[in-house]
Design a protein around this nucleic acid. Sequence first.
DNA 1: CCAAAAGAATGATTTATATCAGTGAATGTA
DNA 2: TACATTCACTGATATAAATCATTCTTTTGG
Lengths: 234, 234
Amino acid sequence: MRHKIECTACTSINCFVKKYCTGEYLDKISTQKNQNFYKKGDYIFREGNTMLGIHFIQQGGVKVVTPNLNGREQVVRIASDGNILGHRVLGNDKYYFNAIALMDTNVCFIETGLFRDSCMSIPDFAYNLILFYALELRRTELRVKYHAQMNIREKVAEAFVYLNDVFGTNAATKTLNIELDRQEIGDVAGTTPEQVSRQLNDFENEKLILRKKREIQILNVKGLKNIVREYKIE
Amino acid sequence: MRHKIECTACTSINCFVKKYCTGEYLDKISTQKNQNFYKKGDYIFREGNTMLGIHFIQQGGVKVVTPNLNGREQVVRIASDGNILGHRVLGNDKYYFNAIALMDTNVCFIETGLFRDSCMSIPDFAYNLILFYALELRRTELRVKYHAQMNIREKVAEAFVYLNDVFGTNAATKTLNIELDRQEIGDVAGTTPEQVSRQLNDFENEKLILRKKREIQILNVKGLKNIVREYKIE
DNA sequence: CCAAAAGAATGATTTATATCAGTGAATGTA
DNA sequence: TACATTCACTGATATAAATCATTCTTTTGG
């Protein structure tokens, strides 16, 4: 059993609460929040379940997925340290997606009422939340565009650019800080594991990446980005 | 030249400002806002242009589009009376999409500074804006899911359910309150005009719709919704 | 009112991707 | 170590949708 990390002691630099919530409300959140630990594969929440509050990833990685009709899962979003989770359902009562830990992950949970009170009491917190939503919305709509227009090669390239953005690589080895099987990569890219294999093969031949079983070294991010036409999430 | 409709005199029942903005800020917005009239086909804003404020559709219809790589346009969103426009770019300086009038449309424009001040000063306004964003985000992510998973038949059915939601039908004739050509329907559905023709043919044979040149009567919304599997934007 | 242009409909062909099937490699287990 | 299981790879086939081509219909302009 891990001990709870208080907001004041938290090292998560990207945490929205830590950044914009101040004074008594930060204290309140710090004392009233729950913190849970999840192992790889654990569900943080499930589609259809009742939504009671907002989650913040203290440390780790999470995929937000929705089952598609071929028995596969489609990845809607990938989130890591400091990211907000479950913010889509604010104002609603049910989760619309599943959130699954991609690695060992620590998640803070703030009950809706307290979160609303913080928004109502700290204008700057509320306004920055609005800006955050605007950014998320823009990213998501660009994803609509991409998924509608990209071919397989581009989709797989985009998946790796995305994973690289969210998790980054080990500075020394250039190895991606997350290991996924071909199926999971396919879920992110929106294609089948077979196509992922073929594309990885191509990318390796083009010296964009290097495979060591499931470990993947990103040799040339720029090259991958070039494959993704008109890529312009800021 | 039309005369400007003040917020107090405005009949737009769904307008976000009118609903949640109160007191002095509603007055300020009413006096400081600009109001512009656009004819069908006019651009309200263009991709890449500098973003100076938020738009509200007082009356009419607008499509938010992005050019795709085959020279077509992909419809990201359709908006009508009372809807917010350009909220995706709040906190940014450039528009990411084009907004084009689908019919004669009246649009209110509120400069970013005034809008931010209103958010900061009226917690309820800010919080409801957050809820609005959460809903938009959910809808958009569901659209990601749909576009990734639906076949042509389902996409075209979904396009009509969507158009029906946004514009509705004439109560007496059941005619959809918007006329689009096959190309434009294809842009909404994410397919080609040829496929739209084929699907409309099918739908007519199934007594779901009835075509009169460009006018379309929606005979059976329920039936169209059934085609869209797992449709659940509340 | 007729001619020209634009749009809609429909069949034929091509193309991209998913699916299927088989083989090989890695991993875990008795 | 051998065996079983899972996953990755790769070629062959099937399929859905885009594209192309043609005809038919509607709209527009002189």
